[in-house]
């Protein structure tokens, strides 16, 4: 089991030694993304194909002091062509990871989900943040803080399925999943607790994982069984995945761990044939590199 970002990085290197995955950068004329990819290429975990306006990409690489021969460059003059070519690289198997550069996120997602691209394998795309948080004994995934704004019951099942896949890739055979709630038991005053219980039960019945419970408060999941509890839990104190009720809850929980507690963040969008990497300008460089390493490990596992 990979228990830290460093172990994810080492695993990505091991996999790359056998076959280095190629990242297709959609809209590579973005200095921030170029920096992150250059770092990953130097670290030996990925190769990169830069898609975008060749002249501008060359200029940026020069500005950043990067060797243009380390990259393959595919010229595309407008965003539509950039997205189409990047997706085509992934569909045809010439790239194994897709990374968003200077293109619109919804347009890129739309292209990935288009049946013509043939990249959609899961029920839907969802974001999974894998965190190395100080004081927690293993990697912790929080989902979905980046893609689905109003997930319904069925979306939640798919979110769990995607996150379980990521956990298995990092070596957790039977991931322990906690569905977050404001209390530990379903309460009609808080409809989110009812939904969490239903999702947990449904995922269990469908055999997604042996260990899934909800609703559970963050406090209970991190700490211990509540006083006077009449039930037993495999998830409390040992969760691998936390499924938030809303995109806001997951996003805030992840960013609080990063910004207040210095957690190392690896983020990836799963549910497609290739992992999607979206790094934010606000992410520190080590998190961008770690995110690409995670995408490389996922890509290596699906070969």
């Amino acid at each position: 089991m990979l228990k830290s970002a460093k172990m994810v990085m080492e695993r990505a290197r091991e996999l790359a030694a056998k076959r280095r995955p190629v990242v297709a950068i959609a809209g590579a004329e973005d200095d921030d993304v170029l920096r992150a990819v250059s770092e990953a290429v130097r670290a030996g975990i990925v190769g990169a194909t830069l898609v975008g306006q060749e002249v501008r990409i060359h200029a940026l690489l020069e500005e950043l002091g990067e060797d243009r021969n380390s990259f393959e460059i595919v010229n595309a003059e407008n965003p539509k062509a950039v997205i189409a070519l990047s997706v085509e690289l992934c569909s045809s198997g010439r790239a194994q990871i897709l990374m968003k550069g200077k293109v619109s996120t919804p347009d890129l997602m739309k292209a990935v989900l288009s049946p013509r691209a043939g990249l959609k394998v899961g029920k839907l795309l969802s974001h999974c943040a894998v965190l190395e948080a100080t004081g927690y004994h293993k990697l912790l995934s929080i989902t979905d803080g980046g893609v689905l704004s109003n997930p319904d019951f069925n979306d939640k099942l798919a979110i769990v399925e995607n996150a379980v896949h990521v956990s298995r890739v990092i070596g957790v055979a039977e991931p322990k999943v906690g569905l977050l709630g404001v209390m530990n038991e379903p309460d009609p005053d808080f409809p989110s607790t009812i939904e969490a219980a239903a999702v947990a039960r449904s995922c269990y019945v469908k055999g997604m994982t042996k260990y899934i419970e909800g609703p559970l408060t963050m406090g209970t999941i991190f700490r211990q069984m509540p006083e006077g509890a009449t039930w037993k839990s495999d998830v409390v104190g040992d969760a691998d995945i936390l499924v938030a009720h809303s995109i806001e809850e997951a996003n805030i929980a992840v960013k609080a761990l990063i910004n207040l507690r210095g957690a190392i963040f690896m983020g990836v969008i799963t549910g497609a044939k290739v992992p999607l990497s979206l790094v934010s300008r606000a992410d520190p460089p080590e998190n961008k590199l770690a995110s690409l390493a995670l995408a490389a490990v996922i890509s290596g596992a699906s070969k």
């Binding site: 938030a244 009720h245 609080a256 761990l257």
Partner: peptide, 17 residues
């Protein structure tokens, strides 16, 4: 923006450091 986010955020700060 919602009660779930409030509870999760405050619990997280309480329990992670």
């Amino acid at each position: 923006p919602d009660l779930n986010s409030f509870c999760t955020l405050t619990d997280e700060i309480h329990l992670t450091g």
